[in-house]
Amino acid sequence: MENTLQAVPQNWYLVLSTLLFCIGIMGVLFRRNAIIILMCIELMLNSVNLLLVSFSAYSGNSDGQVFVFFIMVVAAAEVAVGLALLMSIYRNVASTDINVLNKLKW
């Protein structure tokens, strides 16, 4: 395990995270279900986490890892709030489809 940093070029992590990030974006674009969009956003955040950790590991600087904690904190808070919002909407319109939410426009 010690030699991961030598065996795997750092750029691969970069590419992997970017790919993951883009999959997250695709998910947000692709789906209409608010919950799944929320999950895709989590995916995006996780790609960033991965990136940060890889940078941190490769540069031997633990700041990046600490930062990941904050991202987790925020992600948790975000999810809590997001799901609460979702619940309150679901009570009103009985749907999690974001396309239902189009009263406000133009």
């Binding site: 947000v28 674009l29 209409r32 974001i98 396309n99 939410l101 189009n102 009263k103 133009w106």
Partner: peptide, 15 residues
Amino acid sequence: LMQTGNTGFYVFAMV
């Protein structure tokens, strides 16, 4: 009219 009210579209436009 660009302001369709559709979140999906907004995100799409942003991207």
